[in-house]
Design a binder for these strands. Sequence first.
DNA 1: CAAAAATCAATCAAAATCGTTCATTTACAA
DNA 2: TTGTAAATGAACGATTTTGATTGATTTTTG
Lengths: 250, 250
Amino acid sequence: MLTEERHRLILDLLAEKKVVKLQELVEATSSSESTIRRDLSQLEKEKKLRRVHGGAALLHQKREELSVLEKSTKNMEEKRLIAQYAAQFVQDGDCIYIDAGTTTLEMIPHIHAKDIVVVTNGITHLEALLEKDIPTYLLGGLIKKKTKALIGRGALHSLEHYSFDKCFIGVNGIHHDFGYTTPDPEEAMVKSLALKLSRQAYVLADHSKMNESTFAKIADLEAATIITDELDDELLALYEAKTAIEVVKK
Amino acid sequence: MLTEERHRLILDLLAEKKVVKLQELVEATSSSESTIRRDLSQLEKEKKLRRVHGGAALLHQKREELSVLEKSTKNMEEKRLIAQYAAQFVQDGDCIYIDAGTTTLEMIPHIHAKDIVVVTNGITHLEALLEKDIPTYLLGGLIKKKTKALIGRGALHSLEHYSFDKCFIGVNGIHHDFGYTTPDPEEAMVKSLALKLSRQAYVLADHSKMNESTFAKIADLEAATIITDELDDELLALYEAKTAIEVVKK
DNA sequence: CAAAAATCAATCAAAATCGTTCATTTACAA
DNA sequence: TTGTAAATGAACGATTTTGATTGATTTTTG
């Protein structure tokens, strides 16, 4: 295999994986350890990568992904933008529902309205809300260990005693035909009811959720205003035909 | 797995969870304890995280050293003894209610019964319960900022859907004539209802609460078994005439 | 409080990785 | 074909990383 060829392959692999082991490269190129070492030394001199013990890594160590956690960290900036934008819709005196979930959690520091009351089913949201001295009501129900969200019959029963000016719901899928969806049916029921109890509903979702659908349906598109961060014109037109949609600019 | 890779994974996990146990990292990276310790030491030196006993935490995470403060509190040892004793009454298969409060919180680590279900109105109890993988239901309602307890109409409504084998209630006053009392009427109502919904009720209170009374009445003495830590013979006889009482020895 | 369990820091030997040297192979021009 | 320079792969001692062990320290438990 040609030197040029190997270098290309190494950089490609690196771009894909962020970090590669020397042994992987030996295997991928079927050349010897020595050769790969020479390649890496040269590429490092050319500022194309960074050698680390055991292999090589990308130069620019940005806040970016590596593994399963990719999405949680990668889309964080987008989520924050969306959340910040959504927080503007909270106005003085409002009574709002904030759904459990990482995106809606990001809203809280950006809420500046006075005299509001918040109802939520997210345990993690509590600390942030109390920190800001916002009177907070929690739904009852079963705790979902992984997400610390309250779900099930108890949560639904609790909800029935409230009604909201606005609600902010996180979803996992937004689809032209299937509407708003999320993987857990128990959660879907809670989101769905909260939405029905609100005069005005907002759905928060970054662009990776657009045109996707998951198992459990929450509501039709018409039921809420979408707040997202990216959307090509074609899709935008498609959704706009059905409901209001706010696209946050970077 | 490369050092570089591990460090990235550790920081990602930490960003997501705020706090990670060393064992979790050992598992996630399939490397040895020693290696992870070295990683954590290094990352700490680089100001990327903060080591805590048992793992690592995000740099700007204020929630800590509560345990230190708690133990220095005067009646903590007594409370712990009472809680530990009370935990014995929880049996396999029980469905129990655990009231918010520091004494009842101490019960949780000492519960060894299997297949139990817990309902509580204490947010702080959640973490401890989930840690032990105990299925937990939370009441709904207004969050009382200071104590992180759920109170008010919402909590009462949530309670109505349950009934319990046993309940464990913390009180601020136990008095021969005035029964069980607590300062906050909203809380008193919750405690009172929980007590009514239980086949068997236990009231936990250290000796400083004996023969005291505060504003809001929860129930008459007859309604529960008292668990406390000190009582002179004269008072003991007085209370025993009305209800069962367990005195924990030091 | 004291025993038991978990966690920790330090140490050490084994394993993996590294840089260097050198003999061999390959590419290509004379 | 032959000479030469570049590239390759194997070998070896040096360095780094790793995991197990030990005993100290902290935390939990009874």
